[in-house]
């Protein structure tokens, strides 16, 4: 399959999901938390995708869940990216003990399994959407730090940057003219990977019951709610999980294209 086709399909899928997330209140045929059907109604009998164990409309719940997953994933990834890049720039420009402290802290953060750390933080801080997003942001910031710290360090040591500094240019000159633009290609790819891993991570936590709390549910939470209905022999309880997979596949498809575009090197043998 050519990269262009993958890109096209990925963009189309993501756009559709984004539209579903944004327009969920308009598109949803029923309120997501109200019992409008008979419990376990088959698809087509009660609502397009049937009803869950409480008689709530599956399609409406999936639309709203997509919304939760999208918002949580986007905010967490953006915060993680900003935090990681800021730390990398601070470490790269200041050198000395600040650099060492930040570097060691990131090493420690990366040496502990993320889901275990998240479980501990959520146990202490209590489960809420805000804690979930902040936890995710801190945990994932380490990968952005890893990617951008060498770039910040290299650039800060470049002669023309030194010259600029001697010339009396202010901090924002080399931040916005030199350092950040040079980070964009690797950051874009990392941001994409971060989006799919954040989506998987948030869904897993919600699936474990320690993410977004009922009656609201994100895609992972919906799987948790409906898993028992699998015994009825229908695959509809897994639709939310397929949505997550589709999201990650599409994001990865775009990342592959990006990586291919930005790497000028010919493919090694």
């Amino acid at each position: 399959m050519s990269n262009k086709v993958t890109l096209g399909v990925s963009v189309a899928v993501l756009a559709t999901m984004a539209a579903a997330a944004i327009f969920a209140p308009v598109l949803a045929p029923f309120p997501p938390n109200e019992m409008v059907h008979t419990p376990f109604d088959a698809p087509g009998v009660g609502g397009v995708l049937g009803a869950d164990g409480l008689g709530r409309d599956m399609l409406s719940r999936i639309l709203y869940a997509t919304r939760y997953t999208f918002v949580a994933t986007l905010i967490a990834t953006t915060l993680a990216c900003m935090l990681g890049v800021s730390l990398a720039i601070i470490a790269g420009l200041s050198k000395g003990w600040i650099d060492i402290v930040i570097g060691r802290a990131v090493d420690i953060l990366m040496s502990i399994p993320q889901i275990i750390l998240a479980l501990i933080i959520l146990a202490i801080a209590g489960v809420s959407l805000t804690t979930l997003i902040l936890t995710m942001a801190v945990l994932q910031s380490s990968t952005y730090y890893r990617v951008t710290r060498p770039i910040a360090g290299d650039l800060a040591a470049m002669e023309y940057v030194e010259v600029g500094r001697l010339r009396g240019e202010r901090l924002h000159w080399y931040l916005f003219k030199e350092i950040l633009p040079n980070m964009v290609p690797s950051l874009l790819a990392q941001f994409g990977l971060g989006l799919s891993s954040a989506a998987l991570f948030i869904s897993s936590l919600s699936f474990l019951g320690i993410g977004i709390q009922p009656p609201a549910a994100d895609l992972g939470g919906l799987v948790r709610e409906n898993a028992l209905a699998l015994s009825t022999g229908r695959l509809t309880p897994l639709i939310p999980a397929f949505c997550i997979a589709l999201f990650c596949l599409s994001v990865n498809g775009i990342v592959d294209w990006l990586v291919g575009r930005f790497s000028d090197k010919p493919d090694v043998k």
Binding site: F207, G220, V223, L230, S231, A241, I244, A245, C248, L249
Partner: peptide
Amino acid sequence: SAIFLSMPSFLIGYLLVFIFAVK
């Protein structure tokens, strides 16, 4: 492997349950 990497692990688990336990 690209497909499996994009799937949440619970999806893989439940698909196996669906095929080998339910069906």
